[in-house]
């Protein structure tokens, strides 16, 4: 039985798709059979971030409508044999996702995979609720910024009440906080919420802090999940996050301003 993980946030543009790609790749690299599903029907992006956009034939909606079977729609990642992508349809809208259809596809995937990563669309409407409905775990992606924090809070409320686990009175979804685009320098200047500020408001287990890094954008543009970039601090932070998700005790890094860098700059100048 696969564990179903939803990557969600409420707010758009905080890094859900980047995170989905990075965590799915991270899990696969650690030998877990993983599939990542794009729930953003009509605004398909995950295939670009994963670098498989030129291999999309059938999509998630085709499988839901039984126009194609899973084997036809799943795209195997060229870099990692354990990783598959199920792309969204670009020509349909979110109403194509039905609770029964999504449930059936997840059920079918569940036999062959260890983890199913669901990349949720922004918002709290149908697409987002479909992405989280069957989840066992939720990673709530949040930027250190008040509106993002509030939207995450709203999403946590929905996770706690509108999921399958909530409706059938099962053990609640495990919720994790992932802070992205964290800029320690700006936090120190008081321009950005700190990890403590966000945790105080959301009272949630922190699974990772991804520092703001230029490598994220360049990785996205070249279709390489940033976790594959070992040089990048964002990539390293995602790798740490995956380790923590799998139960390893890894200390949080990149929360402080890099002092050495500052001194080096100082002496050079």
């Amino acid at each position: 039985m696969a564990r179903i993980m939803v990557i969600t946030s409420g707010k758009g543009g905080v890094g859900k798709t980047t995170t989905s790609a990075a965590l799915a790749m991270g899990l696969a690299q650690r030998g877990r059979r993983t599939v990542v599903i794009d729930f953003d029907v009509g605004l398909r992006n995950l295939d670009l971030i994963m670098g498989c956009e030129r291999r999309v034939v059938y999509d998630f909606v085709n499988v839901i409508n039984q126009e194609a079977n899973l084997n036809q729609a799943l795209i195997r990642d060229k870099r990692c044999d354990n990783l598959y992508v199920l792309p969204a349809s670009q020509t349909r809208d979110k109403d194509a996702l039905t609770k029964e259809g999504v449930g059936r596809v997840l059920e079918e995937l569940s036999g062959g995979f260890d983890f199913i990563v669901c990349d949720s669309p922004a918002g709290i409407e149908h697409g987002a609720t479909m992405a989280m409905y069957y989840a066992d775990d939720a990673v709530v992606v949040t930027n250190p910024e008040v509106s993002s924090v509030r939207d995450s809070d709203r999403m946590l409320g929905i996770l706690a009440s509108k999921s399958r686990r909530a409706e059938s009175n099962l053990e609640p979804i495990r919720e994790f906080l992932l802070l992205t685009r964290y800029d320690a320098e700006r936090v120190e200047k008081g321009e950005m919420l700190s990890v403590e500020d966000v945790q105080e408001i959301l009272s949630l287990d922190l699974i990772g802090v991804i520092p703001e890094s230029k490598s994220v954008l360049s990785a996205s543009n070249s279709g390489i999940p940033v976790v594959l970039d070992r040089e990048s601090i964002a990539g390293q932070a995602y790798a740490d996050t995956v380790a923590r998700y799998l139960g390893e005790d890894v200390p949080h890094r990149f929360l402080e301003v890099e002092k050495r860098g500052f001194l080096r700059r100082f002496f050079r100048g």
Partner: peptide, 8 residues
């Protein structure tokens, strides 16, 4: 006993 979230 659980946090009451925004919107609830």
């Amino acid at each position: 006993t659980r946090p009451v979230r925004s919107g609830q």
